[in-house]
Amino acid sequence: MRIDSWRYPRPQLAAHYLGLLADAPRRPLAVFGPRQIGKTYFLTHDLTEAAEQQDLRPLYVDLWSQPDPLGAINTALATALRELTSKLQRTPVTRVGAFGLSVGLAAPPALPAGSDPAAWLASQFAELRRLEPQRPVLLMLDEAQTLGKSGAGDAAMKAIRALFNAYPHGLLLLLTGSSRSQLLSLVGDHSKTAFKLAAHMDFPLLGMEFVAFVAERYRAASRREVPLPELDWAFSQLLHRPGEMIDFVRYWITDAPGRDAAEALARFKQVNSPDQLFEEVYAGCTALQRAVLRELVSEAPQLFSKATRERVAAALGLADPVAPASVANAIQQLEAQGILGKVQRGRYAFEDEGFRAWLKSAAAAPGEAR
């Protein structure tokens, strides 16, 4: 197996999460983090490997933009069962080649998908537990905040909760989300049918240890040294997204050798446009919405204060302060677009922390974010 020389493993963090789940198996763990900071890679590699070493059955499901979350979980279970039964069951011979030198094996029959997805989930999970009674399942639901929506999401929540009740020591649940407000609503709202009272915490950003790792890879590939502060600055400009950091350093080595970090990063952004999605979201907002978003970048914005409404008016070229109703309408529209989420009465937060960080960085540059 070829080793990925750019992989930065996080075994201590994986062990920490598994320890929390083992200490309180009846309490799900919810982890928040902006998109593209390495959560998915961590789940599918570090946490999956650590779970297997502890004799857990890892099961990863990506719920991002998933219209049928229960169907996605059922599909992941069906795949796991298929692989497991292929290993455990002696399958019938369907053909024998000349002189008995080759055989064809029929795949074991899969559990039929019933008309009731919740019942099918229960049936599949029961079969998995029957085949591996001593191996608890670690169910990792990525972008789980989508379950907070009514309809299909609520049905999936109820079905998973039923599994918790039926298998108190057979199911460990880890939820991740890129929307803090939606994830907290899912795990902290006592009126929800499922994941209330879950432990929740932030997914830690990679720091100087990762930067030092990248610096070593840069040195090994280019035989040149790069000051750690320069790389750390570039990492912050890329919003602490490890995948883009690695892409940038590879570009620096091959396409911008000899350039300093600032010039290499500027060239990289021109070619790869890592912030294009944020730019498109921002460009799609009205002038009033953009002004409100810029106010929200500050640490403790008073959105409806006269001073704030005067600044918004100045940004729009108006003489009089913007009316409170106009600010409220802009916020409601940004909520409907999934850009903002309500934290509590009168307080709002960016659904994508990466977008907030990009906007703050862009606003600090002359002539940007206007």
Rank of each mutant, 00 (worst) to 15 (best):
L174C: 07
R223V: 00
F268Y: 15
V271H: 12
H169S: 12
E279Y: 04
A198D: 04
L171D: 03
L197W: 08
F278T: 01
L184E: 15
P242C: 10
L277P: 02
E263G: 06
F235L: 01
C285A: 11
Y218K: 01
K149Y: 11
L228H: 11
A283P: 05
R223P: 09
P257L: 00
H169Q: 12
P229D: 05
A199T: 07
K269P: 02
L277F: 08
L184W: 10
D202M: 14
F164R: 15
F235Y: 15
A156T: 04
D255T: 01
R224S: 10
L228S: 08
V187A: 04
A264T: 01
R250H: 11
G151N: 06
R161D: 02
S236W: 07
G188L: 05
A162T: 09
A234R: 03
W252V: 03
L228M: 10
S150P: 10
V214Y: 09
R267L: 13
P204G: 07
G148H: 04
L205A: 15
F210N: 03
P204W: 03
E230D: 15
R217E: 04
I253C: 10
G148R: 05
E216P: 05
V214F: 08
S181Q: 07
E263L: 10
K269I: 02
E216H: 13
D232C: 04
L174V: 06
A256S: 13
S236Y: 07
M245D: 06
A264Q: 01
K269M: 10
L175C: 08
